[in-house]
Design a binder for these strands. Structure first.
Length: 653
DNA sequence: GTAGGGTTAG
């Protein structure tokens, strides 16, 4: 039909148009509708009626239709879309043709009616053409003896909804509100669906009120559309309330309502609530389906809760619910990210066994995980298998391979793959370069790392903070601190963000060269820039300070961090550790006493560190005393608090 | 006629 329409539209001039108006129209449409196909053909050829469709028009064609519904429901199932399309082509191509539309309507024997207008607005030809639709709508509205009905607006809004055209919909809604139509259930459902899709809550509630005022009972679909609409616009609590109303009413929530609500909780990051809703289902005799599980798994996955993801998957298996390939991917990725590559691989094999084909992302995730677990051989085997499986590794796969090889010290192999990427004009990105720079730097091949850095600039790939950090680290670790600082300055000049890692590397490097004041200056600069320190960055600072005998200063800086909401959990532990390692047991003990004085407990492992350090430095008595002492709160065997013992070490030294 | 599928890298 589409083909014939194009021919009609494109070459109508070369065809002979029917006499206008057609003879039957002259008869006021009163001639018999029973005209059979033969007679139509005869009539057509006699009157030079050339029809350019592949399917011949039905006998009804020669009759003036009263309405589009006549055509659609005709026994021949006559499809008027070519004619509709031609009208729209005209509108689309030349706005000045508007006045002729009336003529075309007559030509196609279609009477302009609200049903017809609604029909046209629903046609595929208007998909993605809001302008044309609106022009048609407003043209129709201006015609004599024609008035839009509610359904016309509904269709227009549905269409604009598909285009995501919020502003235009709002304009249409303003007009619609002024029309004061009587709401009906079908229109209300459609409107709630449309407004819900776009999260237009105000309009949604306007329809809902309209329904109430007109005594229209919401159906299950209405409720579900409403809940979906509220959820899509993140009105989770409102959705919750509708859900509660349903639970207490005649129309109880079904699987779709539950799934929608679960989706809402997941979207809002309330995974726990989503799980509760899921558990509720059982008691309400609503069976969870694959959508329920998928929604929950997706939610858990994006929260980083891979364990729940896995147990949901296992539950699906136990229940015999069909497992979509995306579910396998989530589970495999989750396991890979959690460092459980073996289990991930088992699921992967399971997936293949169940008939789901593995994809590039599945393989890549597994390769990465194996490489990160130190099983580079296994990773390379998977890489080989992937290729023999007919899958073409992508930029990410090569990124993972190059990084894995670098981290395992197989730099020559990594460079081979890097070269392969370059030759094949793929994945020439900062990620590949940073892996390589880091690998070379860690292997002490700093000159080469620098060359790679230069090379990327020459190739027009600007280094990002990862590349800078990798090279700065390489330089700082081999004592080229000034070069590292020069790069740090260059970073700022080039507009590349200096991160907490950049500062950590440099602070560490400066302390190692006993350039304490410079290191402290960098720390302050970092804080001033609003960069949140990490545990690692504080460790670099505190270790440097402790080893230069400034334990109190480190403690002071730590205290200053607390109001900023930064509390490095292992700060004291790290400091005591480093002091003990350096044989400065007295300072370590003093720090421990200070911690106890603040009313905090010393963890068992730190006590062990202290005990060993005391023994090593010839303070066996003190070590014994510390071993037998109780620090923190003691409990008796009935569980009640027995005593609180504070043991201060230095008093006895 | 309603509900799920931004999956992989430094």
């Amino acid at each position: 039909m589409r083909r014939s329409l194009l021919r009609l539209g494109a070459s109508s001039a070369t065809h002979v148009l029917p006499p206008w108006p057609p003879p039957s129209y002259y008869n006021g449409g009163s001639s018999s509708k029973a005209s059979n196909f033969q007679s139509t053909s005869a009539f057509s050829s006699n009157s030079r009626w050339v029809v350019v469709t592949n399917s011949l028009p039905p006998p009804e064609w020669v009759e003036p239709f009263n309405d589009v519904s006549d055509i659609v429901s005709s026994p021949q199932r006559f499809d008027p879309s070519p004619w509709v399309a031609q009208i729209l082509n005209l509108l689309d191509g030349s706005p000045q043709m508007e006045p002729n539309l009336d003529f075309y309507c007559h030509k196609f024997l279609i009477k302009l009616s609200p049903n017809f207008v609604a029909y046209v607005l629903k046609s595929d030809d208007l998909r993605g053409k809001p302008e044309t639709a609106l022009r048609f709508f407003s043209w129709a509205g201006k015609q004599k003896k024609y008035h839009h009905k509610l359904e016309c607006y509904v269709s227009l809004i549905e269409l604009l909804c598909l285009c995501g055209d919020l502003d235009r919909i709002r304009c249409v809604v303003v007009e619609l509100k002024n029309m004061n139509f009587l709401m009906n259930s079908n229109a209300a459902n459609c409107l709630i669906k449309s407004f819900g899709c776009l999260g237009m809550v105000e309009e949604l509630l306007w329809v809902w009120r309209g329904m109430k005022e007109n005594g229209i009972e919401p159906s299950l679909y209405t409720y579900n559309f409403l809940v979906n609409g509220l959820v899509n616009s993140m009105f989770i609590e409102s959705a919750e309330r509708v859900f509660e109303v349903m639970e207490g009413g005649k129309i109880v929530p079904d699987i779709v309502t539950y799934n929608t609500m679960i989706k809402g909780y997941c979207k809002a990051g309330k995974t726990q609530k989503a799980m509760e809703k899921f558990w509720d289902m059982e008691g309400r005799n609503v069976e969870a389906d694959k959508i329920t599980y998928m929604t929950l798994m997706q939610g858990c996955y994006s929260e980083g809760d891979f364990d729940s993801c896995l147990s949901l998957y296992q539950e699906m298996r136990e229940k015999g619910i069909e497992i979509p390939s995306h579910a396998y991917s989530l589970v495999i990725n989750g396991l890979c990210k959690g460092g459980k590559c073996m289990v991930g691989y088992a699921v992967f094999e399971d997936m293949i066994e169940k008939g789901c084909k593995a994809n590039v992302a599945n393989y890549t995730a597994l390769i990465d995980s194996y490489a990160k677990c130190g099983c580079i051989e296994e990773a390379m085997k998977l890489f080989k298998r992937m290729k023999s499986d007919g899958l073409e590794p992508d930029g990410v796969t090569y990124g993972v391979i190059v990084n894995g090889l670098c981290k395992s010290g197989r730099l020559e192999k990594a460079m081979e793959y890097f070269q392969f990427c370059q030759n094949n004009r793929m994945a020439d990105n900062a990620m590949l370069y940073s892996s390589l720079i880091d690998g070379l730097g860690k292997a002490g091949r700093v000159d080469e790392a620098e060359r790679v850095f230069e090379q990327m600039i020459e190739k027009g790939c600007p280094p990002d903070s990862y590349c800078y950090n990798a090279l700065i680290d390489a330089l700082a670790k081999c004592g080229k601190t000034d070069e590292a600082l020069a790069l740090f300055k260059k970073m700022e000049k080039e507009g590349c963000d200096q991160t907490v890692y950049t500062y950590t590397i440099l602070i560490d490097g400066l302390f190692k060269e006993h350039r304490n004041e410079e290191a402290l200056k960098l720390w302050d600069m970092m804080i001033d820039k609003g960069i949140t320190p990490t545990a690692a960055s504080f460790r670099a600072l505190s270790v440097g300070l402790c080893l230069s005998g400034k334990v109190a200063r480190a403690c002071k800086i730590l205290d200053d961090l607390a109001p900023m909401g930064v509390i490095p959990e292992t700060a004291f532990e790290d400091m005591i550790n480093v002091l003990c390692k350096a044989g400065r047991v007295k300072e370590a003990c003093k720090l421990a006493d200070g911690i106890v004085d603040r009313g905090r407990e010393i963890p068992g492992r730190i006590r062990t560190v202290l005990i060993n350090a005391l023994r090593k430095t010839g303070n066996a008595d003190l070590a014994m005393k510390l071993m037998h002492s109780k620090i923190g709160i003691g409990y008796d065997r009935w569980g009640s608090v027995k005593k609180r013992v504070k043991f201060r070490i230095l008093i006895d030294i």
